[in-house]
Design a protein around this nucleic acid. Sequence first.
DNA 1: GTGAAAGCGCTAACAT
DNA 2: ATGTTAGCGCTTTCAC
Lengths: 330, 330
Amino acid sequence: MQRVTRDDVARRAGTSPAVVSYVLNNGPRPVAPATRARVEQAIAELGYRPNLVARALRSTRSNVLGLVVPDSSEGYFTQLTHAVERAAFARGSLVLMGNSAFSREQEQRYAESLANMRVDGLLLVRAEIAGAAATESALDVPVVYLHHQAPAGSEAPSVVLANNSGGRLTAEHLLGHGYDEIGCLTGTARSGPVADRARGWTEAMRAAGKDEGNVLRTGLDRHAARADIRRWLQSSRPRAVMATADGLALDTLTVAAELGLRVPDELAVIGFGGTEAAAHSWPPLATAGHSFDDFAGAAVSTLDQLRENSPATDQILDVTLTTRASCGCR
Amino acid sequence: MQRVTRDDVARRAGTSPAVVSYVLNNGPRPVAPATRARVEQAIAELGYRPNLVARALRSTRSNVLGLVVPDSSEGYFTQLTHAVERAAFARGSLVLMGNSAFSREQEQRYAESLANMRVDGLLLVRAEIAGAAATESALDVPVVYLHHQAPAGSEAPSVVLANNSGGRLTAEHLLGHGYDEIGCLTGTARSGPVADRARGWTEAMRAAGKDEGNVLRTGLDRHAARADIRRWLQSSRPRAVMATADGLALDTLTVAAELGLRVPDELAVIGFGGTEAAAHSWPPLATAGHSFDDFAGAAVSTLDQLRENSPATDQILDVTLTTRASCGCR
DNA sequence: GTGAAAGCGCTAACAT
DNA sequence: ATGTTAGCGCTTTCAC
């Protein structure tokens, strides 16, 4: 049994294929109500489903967005991915997604595949990848960087959190609690969101005249990170920890439980990212963040602007603090 | 500047468009080495990128798989989604994904969009959705159900875990520890994976001559579930809990911490799903599960079989137990 | 208001 | 081994 095409519908409705298109797309030409009704009936009777591939080829618009994240299983990226999917669907688009596994080569591979698939736009979420831009210029597709600033040499706009001021905010909150030894738990990258948050911490500590030397930098391997944190908590014994990502903060909570350290009484912890997981840990984790739906929505709109050749500018989203038990509040 | 097409490449290489296709697809006709080299050079010089939309239209194969999950942010589905993406990419396909939000209507909407996008196959992950099949028959696309059995009236094969025997396995493990009052924490659906696991628990309890009455059924709202669990632990005080999903088990761990119940000394907990999160909780959560990569791989292969019109059969994946501190081991 | 027709960029059958 | 060509199913311009 052959698939039903637009021609079948036209034949059955006793009209031309063009009119079927006009009905389907509600334009660009008007259709008489009676004709429209006949077409709609034919569509229903035949169970016609427009071939979106053909439409995409003809119209050079696929209604598909590409999304590349480092690791869609990691809490923060998971939520960003979900939010992008929701924002896209609300706008009538579907999302083709890929995991770069923190590898520039893999990111490039996905970006190319996605571009060849003629996605309407590409959302690139980088993390902890040093170095050059993906050669997005050759891709000939609108690109927006999400979460991470666009790399040097890139023309693409970005939508990022106010990481530096957010870092200051969280550090100041801990300072406000009166904690003396405040450590910073962060990643190894020298630039990027996580590094910016750490810089904010440094600035706040310096401004308060406190020791800014207690920094633990750890990598992406979660098991190793835990071991690092354990050693750190045992040796340098900070009274409070600002983690530059919720994942690190949650690991700190777990290690604290392992060591029998009471949070927040013996160790206060604050995270960054505003993930759901933070609300569900024990004790609940204070965290700085921004609504993921807003975040994703801003990125998708920016992509739209790019398509319309409007000059898209970088966006920096304000970060607000959600205080919870872990920092010493309540 | 116009995009480079295959004709441009042919012109530059001084050959015909067909030959360019033969080079690109490595067939179906042979190409002389010298010609091939010229074509490849032209491709490189022009920065040609094949239009996969056109290819999909012509070849009726998109190299795109559709995936619909209830909630890609929930730990288990997150990992399943990631694994599907990986399995698909390994096979040369990308994944278009959608969140049904546990709604049959939304699932149907996505399934239709995805089918209209002419995905090569549809992977449907259902949970806690009662009732009818998506009208997949009209979709005219290979469908495989993942995680959940195919609904009644569906012809589609499914790839599921051995939920019933897995439920027995976990219950028996708890029984083996010598715990007396063993409760079961599960969902509200009367059928499906979670219900099957609970049934396995019941069978094991009955076989052991133990009380099978201590069951808490709770819904999808996480906040409400926590409150339910709290009341349950306080009133019926089971010595051990088998949760039919890791998410519920992790919530139990959190509530236990809140209540000051020591796990496993005062309350043993075991989960189901084999998620990563289970390995990172405190205490580490024992859980029954199956490799997500296998799980996703099986689903993707089944989809391939369906495309080749091989008779695809249901698959039931064995579940193994990973014991960790939470159940009393170690 | 409606229809005819020209492609979008590609694959592959059919020629040579 | 290579070239010619007929579509895949659709959108939209242009005629009527």
